[in-house]
Structures are given as structure tokens and as C-alpha cells.
Simulated scan of single mutants.
Amino acid sequence: MKINSTVILTLVLLTLMLGAGSVSAFLGFTMGSSALKGVSSPDGRPTTKFSSSNNNKVQQVGITLLKEEDIIKSTKARIQENKTAKKTTQDNDEIKPQKTKTTEKQEEVAQEKLKPGFPIVSDSEGVSMSVQSVRYSGGDLLVRVKMQNQGADSVRFLYSFLDVTDDKGRTLSAITEGLPAELPANGPTFTGTISIPTALLDNVGSISLALTDYPAQKLKLQVSDIPVEK
């Protein structure tokens, strides 16, 4: 009897333990399932990841293709604009020199009409030198001179031989500009300027110019009593 009661007690204890274990396992499974609801495992497939990434890029960037006709029209329009701009620039460049020449001619005419009594002319052996006008500019007196050779032979000059004197007989320093070193026979009229520093002309009423050819020194061009009063 003692053996049977011990066996029965052991079986009962085992049954209770199994039952308790089964209940614990069921409860644990149930609680775990509830906790993991809404959670999905990550997609570990590389091909899926790459394909989804490429699709996103294509959707974000987008490509717009232009029509061939639109490209041709745009190119022609730009070429035409460049041609028009270039032509306008060329026209302006051509107009500017013309305006400059006209202005210079007007200034020359105005300079020649500054004072009465001009031009003052000197002739020698078919060569003439004439003073057209005088004017003060900056710190210099500008004497505008024209020269022409109507003789049969060309004539050469060294303007270092040009004598400039005032009405008191004093020699004045001067700089020539634009006057030719040689006057051709039956040639055109040449125009130049003789510049004299204003500081040398204090209390001076008139000046004189004297020039001879080089090396023959056969000519004697002399223009006297050129008024220079301010």
C-alpha cells in the first residue's frame, strides 16, 4: 500500500509539473506574440534594396527631352542676334571716325578765324609758308602753319634751323609738330604746329619766324609781326 501511494503521489506531482510548464509556455507565447504585433522583419535581399533605390532616383530626377525643331530655332535665333550685334558695333565704329574727322575740320576752321589779319604769308623760290592762326592752349602758344612747294624741285628742311624771335629780338625756344622734312615738287599743302612756352611770352606783343632749306640754304622764308597778345 505504501508503494502504491508513493507512486500515485509521484505521478500526481509529475502531472502538476507538466501542467504548470505547459501553462507557462502558453502564457509566454501569448505575451510574446502580442508584443511583436506590427513588427516585420527587415528585407535582407540586396536586389530588392537596389531596385527600390534606383526607382526613387529616377522618380526624383526626371529627364526632359527637347524637340529637334526647338533646338534649331533657338540656334538660328542666337546666330541672328550675334550677327545683328556685330553689325551694330561695326556701324558705330565707322560713324565715330567720321564724326571725329568732321569735328577736327570744324575746329581747324574755327582756329583759322580766331583773329583778323591771318594768314600771314611768306614766299621764296616757289615755296610758301603761311601762319594761319595763333592760340593759347594750356601752357603753350600754338602757331598753326601751312607749307607748300609749287617749284620744280623738292625741298628739304631741318627745323632745328627754325628761328623764332620776339618783338624785342630775343630768341625763343619752340617745338614743331606735323611739318614735313621734305616738300615734294608741285606737292600738296602740309599743315603743322609750332609750340612756344607761354612763360617766354611775358610782355611780348608779336613774334617772327625764319626758316631756310637744308643743305642748300637757297630759300629764305620769313613771317614777321605775328600778333600774340592774350
Rank of each mutant, 00 (worst) to 15 (best):
K37Y: 12
G38M: 03
G38E: 12
V39C: 05
P42Q: 06
P42F: 10
P42W: 04
P42C: 06
D43A: 07
D43M: 01
D43G: 05
D43W: 04
G44W: 03
G44R: 06
G44D: 06
T47C: 05
T47S: 15
T47A: 14
T48E: 13
T48P: 01
T48W: 09
T48V: 10
K49V: 06
F50M: 11
F50R: 09
S51V: 06
S51G: 02
S52N: 10
S53I: 03
N55I: 02
N55S: 15
N56K: 13
N56D: 14
K57Q: 09
K57P: 00
V58F: 08
Q59F: 08
Q59N: 08
Q59G: 01
Q60L: 10
V61T: 12
G62F: 03
G62D: 01
G62E: 05
T64D: 10
T64N: 12
L65G: 02
L66Y: 07
L66A: 05
K67Y: 01
K67P: 02
E68F: 03
E69H: 02
D70K: 00
D70F: 00
I71G: 03
I72H: 07
I72C: 04
I72L: 12
K73M: 01
K73T: 05
K73S: 07
K73Q: 13
K73Y: 04
S74F: 05
T75F: 09
T75I: 06
K76D: 08
K76P: 01
K76F: 07
R78T: 04
R78E: 15
R78F: 04
R78G: 03
R78L: 09
I79G: 03
I79R: 09
I79W: 13
E81S: 06
E81F: 03
N82Y: 15
K83A: 14
K83E: 15
K83Q: 13
K83C: 05
T84W: 07
T84I: 12
T84S: 15
A85Q: 07
A85N: 11
K87W: 04
T88H: 15
T88M: 13
T89D: 15
T89N: 07
T89L: 15
N92G: 10
D93P: 00
E94N: 11
E94G: 02
I95D: 14
K96N: 05
K96E: 12
K96Q: 07
P97L: 03
P97T: 03
Q98F: 08
K99M: 13
K99A: 14
K99E: 13
K99R: 13
K101G: 02
K101W: 06
K101F: 10
T102S: 15
T102Y: 09
T102C: 04
T102A: 14
T103D: 14
T103I: 07
E104Y: 05
E104D: 12
E104Q: 12
E104V: 04
E104C: 01
K105M: 10
K105P: 00
K105D: 12
V109G: 02
V109N: 14
V109T: 13
K113F: 04
K113T: 04
L114S: 10
K115F: 07
K115Q: 05
K115W: 03
K115E: 09
K115C: 00
